[in-house]
Design a protein around this nucleic acid. Structure first.
Lengths: 295, 295
DNA sequence: CTGTTAGCGCATTCAC
DNA sequence: GTGAATGCGCTAACAG
């Protein structure tokens, strides 16, 4: 009777099944904006490991802050674990969502003291230091920095690395050469225009990420300032577009694929009850293309 | 007592809540590959409407066919509705997953006869016709076509439009000038190399999508065939990279943002019990850049 | 207005 | 082996 019903088009309810089994066999990747096209490498890394372990992967957006889908997935443990790359969810919220058996891997912040939260980050200050150093070593006697939002840890660290390099190489560190570009293309465009209007153009610009560098490139083109003949620029991230820009963008590559793989790998270790380090670090790598003038 | 527990760090279970309420307030966007970077416009459109309606959006991959996450979300109605853009899930499976009160919006196929499944598509054959026509009108006396997978409806229709244009404009239609590039960059590269090795190069190539055109551009560059001086090429989709290619790619733009908005809009109408058309169509639009030589 | 209770649809257990 | 009963953790309905 019941089996007959099953044969002819039985559709089970996922939620009911999850409730009973107390696990979803699903991992959520929490992103600040689903429509941002720059995570594909990371997603690929995560997806590989998640599928390999017989789990499903869903991507969730934290678009509207704490009322967002992502927040709900965190707070209500709608999956068996979570990989967090959503800087607009605040750390207290994350801490309050942590619970036994619900691993959280944070890729965009350092969370200490909670055994259910592991963080993985790239060495931003070091990467920024190298970017700035590269500009200086290739002949720039002055270097500006277009930074990201002040509340972003990535941005703060990159700014710190930049300043350290200026200090170490006796290069002028001027307030007017540090502008906020909000990590967006538009922001990079505006910040670069401001830099140009100030009159005293530096010989190099270190953009806190590639998106802002794209905006910068557009602003520079508008004013017929040639890259790299008149000014050298360097970005951070190595997004997919970087090699296609004119000129191809020199940048600091983040090993996104590797980070994605490690994040999910660690997640499954936690799910299996194994103990892991509370923090992992990767280095960024200089990808030299044509936006920095070499001597 | 219970309220005291709540105050100090109560974490509710999402699955249990969903079960009780019999709705998730979540819409799933089913994509064939989460790491594909070419959906951002569409996602943006969907996200806007979904959030506006107080719902959450999650993105799910159908990476591993019928055993995939996406398939599970369809089959088990894990969300209140679904937007489908996953050609690797077959239509019978979709039909068998349909149920009352679980709207499915199909963006990559035409599904007829089921009131719970609505399809939205672009007029592929017409777009392909226009692409081919554009090549012919700009002076190409011969036009090849690199197509997508044979089982893709999009690909079939684009091929049909191409053939129709050749017929209408008395342009030679040769079997050797229709090659399969699988809708991937690699496939487009290989197909283009084959075309080159055949010796008798056409004056224009219509690629079934932009990704294959990128591969084609690479192959052409390798053989020092100049675009558009030696050969004109046109793509389909207008992906984000298209204007950044060398030369900037002429292509048929799909109104992805608008499609995303309509898809979610229709979904909510269905959820509200309103009746809607069973099928909607958009037109592709010629975006003229520099990969077609103009006379 | 606060406290108790029934039942959502499954998977698992136990009785048969 | 097949079939009925229990309870997962909530929410909504209801009683006090």
């Amino acid at each position: 009777m019941l089996s007959a019903a099953k044969e002819l088009n039985y559709l089970k309810s996922g939620p009911a099944s999850d409730l009973k089994k107390n696990r979803t066999k699903t991992i959520a990747l929490l992103l600040s904006d689903l429509s941002g096209p720059f995570y594909s490498e990371l997603i690929r890394g995560v997806q590989e490991i998640v599928l390999e372990n017989g789990y499903d992967l869903i991507a969730v957006s934290s678009y509207a802050d704490e009322s967002s889908t992502a927040a709900r997935f965190l707070r209500e443990a709608r999956t068996d674990g979570v990989i967090l790359l959503a800087h607009n969810i605040n750390t207290d919220f994350v801490l309050n969502s942590a619970r036994e058996g619900f691993p959280i891997i944070a890729l965009d912040r350092e969370v200490i003291g909670n055994p259910n939260i592991i963080s993985i980050s790239v060495n931003n200050s070091r990467g920024a230091y190298e970017a700035t150093e590269h500009l200086i070593n290739s002949g720039c006697r002055s270097v500006a920095h277009i930074s990201g939002p002040a509340n972003s840890k990535d941005s703060q660290e990159r700014l710190a690395g930049y300043k350290q390099a200026l200090a170490d190489f006796n290069t002028p560190s001027l307030y007017k050469w540090i502008l906020n570009g909000k990590f967006t293309q538009e922001g990079g465009y505006e910040a670069t225009k401001m830099l140009i209007h100030q009159g005293d153009l530096p010989e190099g610009i270190f953009y806190g990420n590639d998106e802002m560098a794209i905006g910068g490139l557009n602003a520079l083109k508008e004013y017929e300032i040639r890259v790299p003949e008149d000014i050298s620029i360097i970005g951070f991230d190595d997004i997919q577009l970087a090699p296609y820009l004119r000129p191809p963008l020199t940048t600091m590559r983040q090993p996104k694929y590797e980070i994605g793989k490690l994040a999910s790998h660690v997640l499954f270790q936690l799910l299996a009850g194994e103990s892991v380090s509370s923090h992992y670090t990767f280095d960024a790598e200089l990808i030299s293309r044509e936006s920095v003038r070499l001597f």
